[in-house]
Each structure stands twice: as structure tokens, then as C-alpha cells.
């Protein structure tokens, strides 16, 4: 088994096929979308492939160390141009193909008009713990 991070972007990914801003959807379309995401997670838990999933607020702040005894420097929020993560899901699956398959299904979540969003999701493999026999 290998773990993968599925990343969903607010910004920074190529445009989705069904690219309509969420605030332009009908309430029913929003509910259908949320339901799809919940069902998807429940299904992965049932197949023993779900590790965790979270949504993130779009309000992020950059922080860095600014020297001994000084408070950290903060910056942001940033202009519309930068990459912004909306949420993530960690899955534990048998193969890379399976990770892509699941990301494909997640990308089919319904959006405006009840049609799949076809949004671009980023699939990133975890670096594994070191296997015992590698020498």
C-alpha cells in the first residue's frame, strides 16, 4: 500500500471544464456537491482506503522566523495570482493507478447544473518509511 495526497486547489490549478464559481450555483447544486464529497469519503472508508480529509479556509498567512527575540514576520493574504489549496484527502491504496482512478472520481463531483466539475486535482505520493531490505 502507498499513501497519496489528493490536493484540491482554489487557485493555481488549470481551469476546470465546468468552471462556474460556487456562489453562482443553486443551493441544491451545493448540497449535491457536499453530499457527493461525503459519500466519496464514506465509500473510501468502507474500502479501507481512507486516511484523512480536510477542507481549508481560503484565508492563509505566510509566516517566517525573524531572528532571536523578535515576533515572527507575517505576510498576506496574497493577490489572486498565487496557488491556493482548498482541501486535501489522504488515501492509502494498492497502486498508483488506483490513486489516479480515485482522483478522477473525486474530480467528477457535481457542480453547476448538476454536471461534473471536471476540476484538476493534484496527486502527490508520500515518501514512504524506509523498507527493511534495501541494502
Amino acid at each position: 500500500m502507498a499513501k497519496y495526497l489528493l490536493l484540491k486547489h482554489y487557485r493555481g490549478a488549470p481551469a476546470a471544464v465546468n468552471d462556474v464559481a460556487m456562489d453562482q450555483w443553486t443551493p441544491e447544486e451545493l448540497s449535491a456537491h457536499v453530499q457527493y464529497m461525503e459519500d466519496f469519503a464514506a465509500r473510501l472508508e468502507a474500502t479501507g482506503e481512507l486516511v484523512d480529509h480536510q477542507a481549508l479556509s481560503p484565508e492563509g498567512t505566510f509566516v517566517r522566523y525573524d531572528g532571536e527575540g523578535r515576533p515572527p514576520v507575517t505576510d498576506g493574504p496574497f493577490a489572486e495570482t498565487k496557488d491556493l489549496i482548498a482541501g486535501w484527502m489522504v488515501i492509502d491504496v494498492e497502486t498508483h493507478e488506483r490513486a489516479l482512478e480515485l482522483a478522477g472520481e473525486l474530480s467528477a463531483a457535481p457542480g453547476a447544473g448538476g454536471k461534473p466539475i471536471h476540476e484538476w486535482l493534484e496527486v502527490r505520493p508520500f515518501l514512504a518509511a524506509c523498507s527493511t531490505i534495501t541494502e
Partner: peptide, 15 residues
């Protein structure tokens, strides 16, 4: 041991 939630492992075993 496999760094997954208990519920996920329980499902994997019952499947």
C-alpha cells in the same frame, strides 16, 4: 503500524 485510522483498518479486515 500502517499509519491509517482504526476505522479504515477495521474495514480492510472485514472486507
Amino acid at each position: 503500524a500502517y499509519l491509517v485510522p482504526e476505522a479504515t483498518m477495521a474495514q480492510r479486515i472485514s472486507r
